[in-house]
Amino acid sequence: MKLLGISGTILGSKTAVLVKQVLDEVEKLRANVQIEFLDLKNYELQFCDGRPTSHYNDDTQEVIKKVSEADLYLIGSPIFNGSIPAPLKNVFDLVSPEVFRHKVMGFVANGGTYQHYLVIENQLKPIAGYLRCYVAPSYVYAHSQHFNTNNEIIDTDLLNRIQKLATELIIMHRGIEKTKRKGGIK
Rank of each mutant, 00 (worst) to 15 (best):
21 Q>G: 07
21 Q>T: 08
24 D>I: 00
26 V>I: 15
26 V>T: 04
27 E>T: 07
27 E>N: 06
27 E>W: 13
28 K>A: 14
29 L>F: 13
30 R>Y: 06
30 R>H: 15
31 A>E: 15
31 A>F: 11
32 N>T: 06
33 V>G: 06
34 Q>M: 11
34 Q>E: 15
35 I>Y: 13
35 I>L: 05
36 E>I: 14
36 E>F: 13
36 E>H: 14
37 F>E: 11
38 L>I: 10
38 L>G: 13
39 D>E: 14
39 D>P: 07
40 L>N: 10
40 L>I: 09
41 K>T: 08
41 K>Y: 11
41 K>P: 10
42 N>M: 12
42 N>C: 08
42 N>A: 08
43 Y>S: 01
44 E>N: 10
44 E>I: 05
45 L>K: 00
46 Q>G: 00
48 C>A: 08
48 C>S: 15
49 D>Q: 01
51 R>E: 02
51 R>P: 01
51 R>L: 00
52 P>G: 00
52 P>F: 01
52 P>E: 13
53 T>K: 13
55 H>K: 13
55 H>C: 12
55 H>M: 13
56 Y>M: 01
56 Y>Q: 02
57 N>M: 11
57 N>T: 03
57 N>E: 06
57 N>W: 01
58 D>R: 15
60 T>Q: 03
61 Q>M: 09
61 Q>I: 06
62 E>A: 12
62 E>V: 03
62 E>I: 06
63 V>D: 07
63 V>A: 11
64 I>V: 10
64 I>Y: 10
65 K>M: 15
65 K>C: 06
65 K>S: 15
66 K>G: 12
66 K>Q: 14
67 V>R: 15
67 V>S: 15
67 V>K: 14
67 V>C: 13
67 V>G: 12
68 S>G: 15
68 S>K: 06
70 A>N: 08
71 D>S: 14
75 I>K: 03
75 I>R: 05
76 G>V: 03
77 S>K: 10
77 S>W: 00
78 P>A: 05
78 P>W: 09
79 I>H: 05
79 I>N: 08
80 F>M: 10
80 F>S: 07
80 F>Y: 11
81 N>I: 07
82 G>F: 12
82 G>E: 03
82 G>Y: 12
83 S>M: 07
84 I>R: 03
84 I>Q: 05
84 I>T: 04
85 P>S: 02
85 P>I: 04
86 A>M: 11
86 A>V: 13
87 P>D: 04
87 P>K: 07
87 P>A: 06
88 L>D: 03
88 L>Y: 12
89 K>G: 02
89 K>C: 04
90 N>S: 11
91 V>S: 09
93 D>P: 04
94 L>N: 03
95 V>F: 01
96 S>M: 04
96 S>Q: 02
96 S>V: 00
97 P>G: 02
98 E>C: 02
98 E>T: 09
99 V>H: 03
99 V>F: 05
99 V>N: 07
